[in-house]
Nucleic acid binder design. Structure first.
Length: 862
DNA sequence: GTTCGCTCACTTTTT
DNA sequence: GTGAGCGAAC
C-alpha cells in the first residue's frame, strides 16, 4: 500500500497538466515506467495487462463486436450452464487455452452475472450473496476474454474502501498485479479525474483544490455576510446542506426550483448558491458535490468530450447501485449512452442512505432506464444460518415497493434470533458485557463479535461497561483521521505553505494557536485582499506594513507570514516530513497541544505524529495533500482481538459471527425523527436498516430493548420497537429477564400504552437463575462444543463457556501495579487518581469524568 | 481579543 | 450529558 502511494506522488503531481486524454492517450502510450498498484485512481498508471500493448493507438485496437450470449439457455438457473455457449470460436479457443479458473466455485446465478457481458444487467445481490465476488470476477472475465482493456472499463464504487478491496481482489483473480484499471474508483475520484482533464471548460484550472465540509461552510458564511444577510438567522451550515442537496439532485443555480429558493435567506437562496459557485471559481476550488455536477455540465455542454468517453468505456460497472443519487444516476446515464454494457449491482433492501440523497428509485427503475435489461437475483446466502435469514426476511417483507428476493442458505437453521427485554440501558450493557465475557472464556475470537447501534450516543453505556470489564473493543466509524481538528489544522499549515492562494486554509490557521489576531483583524486583511484581488496571504503581507492592525496582531501576523515564506523556501531542499515537523513546531502548534491539559491533548499529539509518519509514504508534500483531499480515510490496522462497536450504518458490508443489536425501542429504532420527517418512506428505510443489522450476523443475533433509557441526560421510558414484533415468531427465541424488572415492562405502563397492540413479549416468563441456564445459552454451548468449526478451520475442541456468575475472572494477573493514591491517565476519561484497588480492577476518581471502575490495562501512570 | 458561563439542541455520514 | 454558539466580562 504504502509503496504504491509513493509512486503516486510522483506520477501525477496534482497541479501538473496531464496529457490530452485522447490525442495522446497516456494510459496506453509510453512513458511506460513504474508499475502502479495504486488505489489512488487519480493517476493514470500505464497498463501492462497482456494485450494492452502500449504502442497500439487506442482507436486502432482490435475490437470484438458484441457477442450475443443467448440468455434463454440460462433462464431457470437450475443447471450450471456451459460456459462456452454462445462464444465465438476464437473465444472458446482462448478459454480452452487458459482455463477460466476464476469461474470455478461460482453458483449458476453468480456465473450468469459474470458471463452476461453484453447489454444492461442488474444484479440484485442480497446480503451475503457474494456481490463483490461477482463484480470482481466479472471484471476479470472481461479482461481474460479480451473483450476490453483495463482502461476501457469504468467501475465505480461509493467508498475508497470498496474501491481498494476491488482492486485487490481483481489483482488476485487475474494473477499477480493488475495494472491499470485507471477507471476503477469512487464516483468522486473518477469525477476529479475527468474534471482535471477538462478543468478549463468548467472555469477552473487543472490544479484546483477540493474543499472539505469545513471549508465549504466557512465559504458559505462569507457569501451570506457578503449578501448582507444576518448570519445568525441564516446559518451557513444550513445553506451548505441545502446546496449539497441541490448538487446531489443535479440542480445548478439556474435550475433551482422557485419553491425551494424561498427556503433560505429571505428568498435569496438561489443567489447565494450562484455567489458561492462564483467564489469557488475565484478560489480555483470545487466542493464534493461539484466533482460530479461539474462533470455533468461538462458532458452536456461538450458532446464531443462525452463522445470520447463513450468510445473509451466499453463496460461500465456500478457497485451499491441502490445508494446512487440523482447526479450519479444522470452521470452514469450519460456515460452509458456509448455502450449498453452496464452492470449495476445492488440490493434495494439495503438502501439506508436516502437521507443523504440516495434514490432507491434508481434501482427499482433500472429495467425502464435500460430496456432489455437482464435482471439476475443472487439469493443464495453464504453468510448466515437459516433462522437469521428467515427472521430478516420476515421483517423486510413488511416493506412495500421492493423488487423482492428471498434469501436461502444450505447452512443449518442454527440459533434463533434472541430477543431480550431489559429494565434499562445499563442492564442492557451489562448483559452484553457478560455475554461477551463468556464467549471470551470459551475462546471465541472477539473480532467476530459486534455491537451494532442505531445512533452513536448509544455507544457510551456499552463502552463504559467494556472499560469496567476490561474488554478490548474498537469503535468503527466516528470521526475519521483526516476529520480531526488537529489533523485538519496541520494540513492547513502544510497546504498554505505549498499553495499561497489557499485562502480558506490560511484563515483556518491565522489564529491557531491563538496569536491575538481576532475576527476584526481577519476582516481587515480580507478587505484588503479582496480590494486588490490578491490571495489573503499576500494581503496579510501588505497589511502588516501599514498600521491598520493593532500592534499585537500586526506583530504576530508579520511573524506568521515570514514563517510561511521561510517554510515555502525550504520545500525544495528539505524532506517533506522534516519540513512538516518543522512547521508544526515553529508555528507553535505542537506547543499548543503540549500545554493543553484536556484528556484528548495527548491523543492529538499522537495523531500529529501519526500524520507525519503517514507522510513518509509519499514522495512529496504535493502528492500527500492530493491524496488527503480526496481519500478521507486511512487504512485501519487490525490491532488485536477486539469487539467491534459501531452504528448499523457503518456495519453495512461487514459480517460477524455474533451480533448484538441493542436499543430496539420505538422512537430510537425506528428513529422518531425519521418517522416525523419522512413518514412511511422513513419507516421503511429504518426497517431496511434493521434488515442490514440482522443480516450482519453469521451465527447468532441478539436483539434487545430497554424499558428505560437515558437520553439527553434524563431517563425516558420506552416501548419495544415494532420491528421486534415483526420478527417471525418461529425464528425468535425470547430470552428470560436477567433482572426482576427485565421483560416485565407491562407493569410500568408499557403494554397498555403500546399503540402497536399487544406484544408477544408482554408475557413474563419465569426467570432463570442465570443467563447461562437459558435454553439459548445451553444450545450455544453445545454448538461451541462441536469439534468442527463452522468454517471448517482447525478444530481444537472448544471449552464450554464458564458459567461462573458474578466475580470476574481476572484478565491479567491478580495484583496490579497501581495502588490507592496513584495519579493515572486514561485515554477516554483523562487524568484521575486511584481511590480503590481490587486486584487489577481499580476505582478511579477522574478529574473530568467522575468516578469510574476501570481495569488497569486501560490506564497509564500519569 | 480572549475567556467564561449560559442556553440550546440533539440520527444516520461518504466523498 | 455534551458540545456548539453566543454574549458579557475581563
Amino acid at each position: 500500500m504504502s509503496a504504491n502511494r509513493k509512486s503516486n506522488g510522483k506520477t501525477t503531481p496534482p497541479g501538473e497538466p496531464v496529457g490530452d486524454l485522447f490525442g495522446m492517450p497516456e494510459d496506453d502510450a509510453p512513458p511506460f515506467d513504474l508499475p502502479d498498484l495504486s488505489s489512488n485512481t487519480d493517476t493514470a498508471p500505464p497498463s501492462d495487462f497482456p494485450g494492452d500493448q502500449p504502442n497500439v493507438p487506442f482507436d486502432d485496437r482490435p475490437y470484438e463486436p458484441p457477442t450475443d450470449i443467448p440468455t434463454s439457455g440460462y433462464d431457470d438457473g437450475a443447471t450450471d450452464p456451459e460456459p462456452e455457449q454462445g462464444l465465438s470460436i476464437s473465444q472458446r479457443a482462448t478459454l480452452a487455452r487458459a482455463p477460466a479458473q476464476y469461474l470455478e466455485g461460482l453458483n449458476p446465478e453468480q456465473r450468469k452475472a459474470v458471463e452476461t457481458l453484453e447489454g444492461p444487467v442488474l444484479v440484485l445481490a442480497g446480503a451475503g450473496t457474494g456481490k463483490t465476488r461477482v463484480l470482481t470476477t466479472r471484471i476479470a472475465h472481461i479482461l481474460a476474454t479480451g473483450k476490453a482493456y483495463p482502461s476501457q472499463i469504468l467501475a465505480v464504487t461509493f467508498t475508497n474502501k470498496a474501491a481498494r478491496e476491488m482492486k485487490l481482489r481483481i489483482g488476485n483473480l487475474v494473477g499477480g498485479a493488475v495494472e491499470g484499471m485507471p477507471w476503477l474508483g469512487t464516483f468522486h475520484a473518477i469525477g476529479v479525474r475527468i474534471l482535471r482533464r477538462h478543468a478549463e471548460l468548467a472555469g477552473l484550472k487543472s490544479g484546483f483544490t477540493i474543499l472539505d465540509t469545513d471549508d465549504q461552510v466557512r465559504l458559505m458564511k462569507q457569501v451570506i455576510e457578503a449578501a448582507n444577510l444576518d448570519k445568525d438567522r441564516w446559518p451557513a451550515r444550513q445553506l451548505a446542506d441545502l446546496v449539497d442537496g441541490w448538487k446531489n439532485r443535479g440542480i445548478t443555480p439556474e435550475t433551482v426550483p422557485p419553491s425551494e429558493a424561498s427556503q433560505f435567506g429571505a428568498g435569496k437562496a438561489r443567489d447565494l448558491y450562484a455567489a458561492y459557485q462564483k467564489r469557488l471559481k475565484e478560489l480555483n476550488a470545487c466542493d464534493f458535490g461539484d466533482l460530479l455536477l461539474e462533470c455533468l455540465t461538462l458532458f452536456r455542454k461538450h458532446p464531443d468530450i462525452l463522445a470520447d468517453y463513450h468510445r473509451r468505456f466499453r463496460y461500465i460497472l456500478v457497485d451499491e447501485y441502490q445508494d446512487t443519487n440523482i447526479v450519479q444516476y444522470l452521470w452514469l446515464r450519460l456515460l452509458s449512452q456509448g455502450s449498453p454494457n452496464v452492470c449495476c449491482v445492488g440490493d434495494d433492501d439495503q438502501s439506508i442512505y436516502g437521507w443523504r440523497g440516495a434514490e432507491v428509485d434508481n434501482i427499482l427503475r433500472f429495467d425502464k432506464d435500460f430496456p432489455g435489461a437482464t435482471v439476475i437475483r443472487l439469493e443464495r446466502n453464504y453468510r448466515s444460518t437459516g433462522h437469521i435469514l428467515a427472521a430478516a426476511a420476515g421483517l423486510i417483507q413488511k416493506n412495500k415497493g421492493r423488487l423482492g428476493k428471498t434469501l436461502f442458505t444450505d447452512d443449518s437453521l442454527g440459533e434463533k434470533i434472541e430477543v431480550r427485554g431489559v429494565w434499562d440501558d445499563e442492564e442492557e450493557a451489562r448483559n452484553i458485557g457478560d455475554d461477551i465475557e463468556n464467549l471470551q472464556r470459551a475462546k471465541h475470537p472477539l473480532n467476530e463479535i459486534a455491537v451494532l447501534v442505531r445512533k452513536s450516543s448509544q455507544m457510551r453505556v456499552v463502552e463504559d461497561r467494556f472499560i469496567t470489564l476490561g474488554l478490548p473493543y474498537r469503535v468503527i466509524g466516528g470521526p475519521r483521521f483526516y476529520e480531526r481538528q488537529e489533523i485538519k489544522d496541520a494540513i492547513a499549515y502544510l497546504d498554505i505553505t505549498l499553495n499561497a492562494a489557499n485562502d480558506l486554509k490560511f484563515e483556518r490557521i491565522i489564529n491557531v494557536p491563538k496569536r491575538g489576531i481576532g475576527d476584526a483583524s481577519v476582516k481587515r486583511v480580507r478587505a484588503l485582499a479582496t480590494a486588490q484581488r490578491i490571495p489573503l496571504l499576500y494581503g496579510a503581507r501588505k497589511i502588516v506594513e501599514t498600521n491598520e492592525l493593532p500592534a499585537k496582531a500586526r506583530r504576530s501576523l508579520t511573524e506568521l507570514v515570514a514563517n510561511i515564506e521561510r517554510w515555502r523556501a525550504q520545500i525544495e531542499t528539505m524532506k517533506h516530513t522534516e519540513l512538516a515537523e518543522l512547521i508544526l513546531d515553529e508555528s507553535g502548534y505542537t506547543a499548543m497541544w503540549q500545554n493543553d491539559k484536556s484528556p484528548q491533548a495527548q491523543t492529538r499529539l499522537e495523531n500529529l505524529k501519526e500524520l507525519v509518519r503517514f507522510m513518509h509514504d509519499f514522495e512529496n508534500l504535493q502528492g500527500f495533500l492530493e491524496h488527503v483531499s480526496l481519500v478521507m480515510d486511512t487504512v485501519q490496522g487490525n490491532d488485536g482481538d477486539r469487539v467491534s462497536l459501531m452504528t448499523m450504518h457503518a456495519a453495512k458490508g461487514l459480517e460477524f459471527e455474533i451480533v448484538f443489536l441493542p436499543g430496539w425501542e420505538e422512537g430510537l429504532f425506528p428513529h422518531q425523527r425519521s418517522l416525523d420527517e419522512s413518514g412511511t418512506e422513513g419507516l421503511e428505510e429504518e426497517r431496511r436498516l434493521a434488515y442490514v443489522g440482522l443480516t450482519r450476523a453469521k451465527r447468532l443475533g441478539k436483539v434487545s430493548f430497554a424499558q428505560n433509557r437515558r437520553t439527553h441526560g434524563l431517563y425516558q421510558s420506552a416501548i419495544p420497537s415494532r420491528f421486534v414484533d415483526e420478527l417471525p415468531i418461529a425464528h425468535v427465541e425470547v430470552a428470560e429477564p436477567t433482572s426482576p424488572f427485565g421483560g416485565a415492562y407491562q407493569n410500568f405502563g408499557g403494554a397498555n400504552t403500546n399503540p402497536y397492540g399487544k406484544s408477544r413479549f408482554d408475557t413474563t416468563k419465569p426467570a432463570f437463575q442465570s443467563t447461562y441456564d437459558t435454553p439459548g445459552w445451553q444450545r450455544a454451548k453445545d454448538r461451541w462444543n462441536r469439534t468442527e468449526d463452522d468454517d471448517g478451520k482447525k478444530s481444537a475442541k472448544r471449552k464450554p463457556p464458564a458459567t461462573i456468575e458474578g466475580e470476574l475472572v481476572a484478565h491479567s494477573s491478580g495484583s496490579s501495579a497501581y495502588s490507592v493514591g496513584d495519579r493515572v491517565f486514561h485515554n477516554k476519561f483523562g487524568y484521575g487518581s486511584v481511590t480503590a484497588a481490587d486486584g487489577n480492577k481499580l476505582t478511579i476518581e477522574f478529574e473530568k469524568a467522575g468516578q469510574k471502575k476501570v481495569v488497569d490495562s486501560f490506564i497509564k501512570k500519569a
